[in-house]
Amino acid sequence: MNRVIHPIEQESFRRLRARLDTSGFPPLTRAVVERVVHSSADLEYAADLVMDEAQLERAHAALHTGAPVVADVEMVAAGITRRETVCRLREARSGPGLTRSAHAVRLAYEEVGPGAVWVIGCAPTALEELLTLDVSPALVIGLPVGFVGAAESKAALRESGLPAVSNVSEKGGSAVAAAALNALLYHPVSTEETL
């Protein structure tokens, strides 16, 4: 099913590309960078995001063959427009040394097992918990936001060797995490260009 692109979105991307040259990025990296910048109106993401095109290609293939998608919070899940997601925050409970977000990751992993795409845009503790599990993900989009633990959890993700999209700074959030995933969902399976 082809996605209908609203004229406002087309104009927004035209303006984005007039202000930011993304032509040097490989196709999926470009798609993620542009979608994240579009969702945040923050051109600095172009230099702040960290990802690998080969990992994105494998994740793109996994998504388009039905890999489950897990979101850390409902705001991330709500922003993912072309796929049902697993989000277990409502059932999760906090306890000694365990935040609700971390427990939600455990619950989701029990449901989906290995091979999922994980989208974490809110809680650094969710990303930290994910790194303690043997998730064998197709991809981890780790873009939690905050002054406590966000940059550190993303650095740990990059050091883990897991296939990932992250960023270096404390910036992030539900909208940009969902945008990064949507970029992979919207990108066609063929090599054609897309918004």
Rank of each mutant, 00 (worst) to 15 (best):
M1H: 12
V4K: 10
H6G: 08
I8N: 00
F13W: 09
F13R: 14
R14N: 09
L16R: 04
A18K: 06
T22Q: 04
S23R: 10
S23T: 15
G24E: 11
L28K: 02
L28T: 10
V32Q: 08
V33C: 09
E34Q: 04
V36A: 01
S39M: 04
S40I: 09
L43K: 12
E44G: 15
A47C: 04
D48M: 01
L49K: 06
V50N: 07
M51R: 02
D52V: 13
E53D: 03
Q55R: 13
L56P: 03
L56V: 11
A59Q: 08
H60P: 01
H60W: 12
H60A: 07
A62C: 11
A62D: 08
A62K: 12
H64L: 11
T65N: 07
T65W: 03
G66M: 06
V69S: 01
V69T: 05
V70M: 00
V70R: 02
V73I: 15
V73Y: 01
A77E: 12
A78W: 01
G79A: 14
G79H: 06
I80Q: 05
R83I: 04
R83P: 10
R83D: 07
E84L: 15
T85M: 10
V86N: 01
C87K: 11
R88G: 09
R88V: 04
S94W: 02
P96W: 07
G97I: 12
G97F: 09
G97R: 12
S101N: 11
S101C: 10
A102I: 07
A104V: 07
V105L: 06
R106T: 14
L107I: 11
A108R: 04
E111L: 11
E111P: 00
E111Q: 15
V112T: 14
V112Y: 06
V119I: 06
G121E: 10
E129D: 08
E129T: 02
L130G: 02
T132K: 11
D134A: 15
D134G: 13
V135P: 02
V140G: 09
I141R: 00
G142I: 08
L143F: 07
L143T: 10
P144D: 13
V148Q: 03
G149H: 09
G149K: 03
A150E: 14
A150F: 07
S153K: 04
A155V: 08
L157D: 00
E159R: 14
G161R: 05
G161V: 03
L162K: 09
P163R: 06
S166V: 05
N167T: 11
S169R: 03
S169D: 02
V176A: 06
A177G: 05
A178G: 05
A179H: 02
L185Q: 00
Y186D: 14
H187S: 15
V189T: 15
S190Y: 04
E192M: 13
E192A: 15
